[in-house]
Structures are given as structure tokens and as C-alpha cells.
Nucleic acid binder design. Structure first.
Length: 257
DNA sequence: ATGGCAATGTTTCATTGA
């Protein structure tokens, strides 16, 4: 079973790339972030034609998340948002597929350390941790996938000195991310030996991608029951190449049956 | 084997992203 996540930075702009990627990779489930589409404008016809059933929670211009489930699998108990956390922004969607509780997340960016958006990000992370503790109590098989907007360690940063203390790398953000791990989840990428300087996001500016000036901020977290099934965790850097790429690459895990 | 911001809507600039 393959679970994937991809911040598409506008599903409208990225639909041709997404459909091609689905055809080439055939994940069983893919969580999308930054669809930037109201629900009425979601391209259901196209995702259906590609062999996926889509569940989504979107809004105009910003945010927006979706879970696409390959034909032959059923999505049960679809839920939007973080229970008990009042939030206009569409950033979380969950579903149960093949006995696995899937939570797709688009964590707030935080803009700048100390800003209102930064405080919102940290509050949001605390609410997510509460939600995931509750999900873990109900589901032994839990996968949390998406754009976490945190580079967990310096080895997830192309130039740690440049980024030290900056948003996405600050210690309070890293502590907020580690709180998810402390709840009982593992960063699937670090279950395996990985090449150094492997990233999931590169700025559109300043030749960041060809210079590999990136960050690893897109993650797949797994509960112990899924860690024991996990055979691989990877980032598809090739998807960042070419015309009109998203600034993020898709991330995936392979789970044994 | 890559390329010098991109996407959106408030639209010809401002806002946001990371």
C-alpha cells in the first residue's frame, strides 16, 4: 500500500501534473495541500477519470486540503478540521481507508517568528497534538501526512546557519513538531538511511532548486503499528522539475500488507 | 540535466507563501 502527500500550490494550476503523477505512481491514497479551491470548483470529474474518489475541504485563494482514494478502496468517517479548535482555514481532513486512519494536514506557515501568524501556528500545532493523541487512542494504525511547515532538524536544512532561528526552523516550531512524535508517532523518513541534503521544498526564487537550496518540511508520521509495516519512505524530487512545478515535491511511504 | 518567484484576486499591484 502506498500513501502519499503533496502540497500542489493550487490544484487548478497543478491538475495536469497531479493526474500524470497519479498515473505514473498509482498511490492508494494521496493527501493534497493548498488546493486553493472552493469545494464547488474541485475537479471531481478529472480525479474520478483518473481512478480516484476525492474528499475535500477547500476555500478560495488559500489553504484547502483533500484526500484522494484509489478505486477499490473505501473512505469511511471523513472528518474536517481539528475537533474543538475553531478555525476558518481549511487545513485538516481525515478518513479511514483499509483500516488505516489517515490525517492530511496543512500546517500554518507562520510567516515570521514573533508575528501573529507565528503564534497562530504554535496554537494550531498544540491543537493538532491534542487531536492526534485522541486519534491514536482510537486507531492503532494512524498516518499523518502533509505539509508540516517545520524542518525538524538542521540536517533537514540546506544551510542551517542561514536558517537558524528563522520561521520553519525556530526552536519553538521544532518543539511543536517533536510533541507530535512524543504523542507516539515516528517520522517515516528517518526510519531509513537517506541521502544527505534530501528536501521536499525549494523556493521558486534564486535558482533554489537547481542549487538544491531546500528544506524538508513535508512529512509522513506513522504510529507504531504502521512503522512495523513501513518498507520505504521517499521524496519524489523529480516532480519538482520542468515547467510549472509546485514548489513542493510529493512524499510517499510503502506499507507492507 | 534542473534555471533566475508563483498564484490569487483585491487585477496592472497587494498579499501570501516558506
Amino acid at each position: 500500500m502506498i500513501l502519499s502527500a503533496w502540497n500542489v500550490n493550487s490544484l487548478n494550476m497543478r491538475l495536469p501534473r497531479l493526474l500524470a503523477w497519479l498515473t505514473a505512481n498509482r498511490p492508494d491514497v494521496i493527501c493534497l495541500q493548498e488546493t486553493k479551491l472552493e469545494d464547488a470548483k474541485f475537479p471531481s470529474l478529472e480525479t474520478t477519470a483518473a481512478g480516484y474518489t476525492a474528499h475535500y475541504a477547500g476555500q478560495k485563494t488559500y489553504n484547502g486540503v483533500a484526500i484522494l482514494v484509489r478505486n477499490g478502496l473505501e473512505a469511511a468517517d471523513v472528518a474536517i478540521g481539528i475537533p474543538g479548535f475553531d478555525d476558518e482555514q481549511k487545513r485538516v481532513i481525515a478518513a479511514t481507508v483499509a483500516g488505516i486512519r489517515i490525517v492530511g494536514v496543512y500546517v500554518p506557515n507562520g510567516q515570521a517568528v514573533g508575528s501573529d501568524k507565528y503564534r497562530y501556528k504554535l496554537a494550531w500545532y498544540a491543537a493538532l497534538a491534542d487531536m492526534l493523541r485522541a486519534e491514536l487512542a482510537r486507531h492503532s494504525a494512524l498516518a499523518v501526512l502533509g505539509d508540516f511547515n517545520v524542518a525538524p532538524e538542521d540536517r533537514d536544512v540546506h544551510d542551517p546557519a542561514l536558517w537558524a532561528g528563522q520561521v520553519l526552523c525556530s526552536e519553538p516550531e521544532r518543539a511543536a513538531f517533536r510533541a507530535l512524535l512524543a504523542a507516539g508517532l515516528s517520522d517515516s523518513f528517518r526510519l531509513f538511511d537517506q541521502p544527505a541534503m534530501t528536501f521536499s521544498w525549494w523556493d521558486y526564487r534564486q535558482l533554489a532548486f537547481p542549487k538544491n537550496h531546500g528544506l524538508r518540511i513535508d512529512h509522513i508520521l506513522l504510529s507504531p503499528a504502521l512503522v512495523s509495516r513501513c518498507a520505504a519512505s521517499r521524496i519524489d524530487r523529480a516532480a519538482r522539475k520542468g515547467e510549472k512545478p509546485s514548489d513542493h515535491a510529493p512524499v510517499s511511504v510503502d506499507l507492507r500488507d
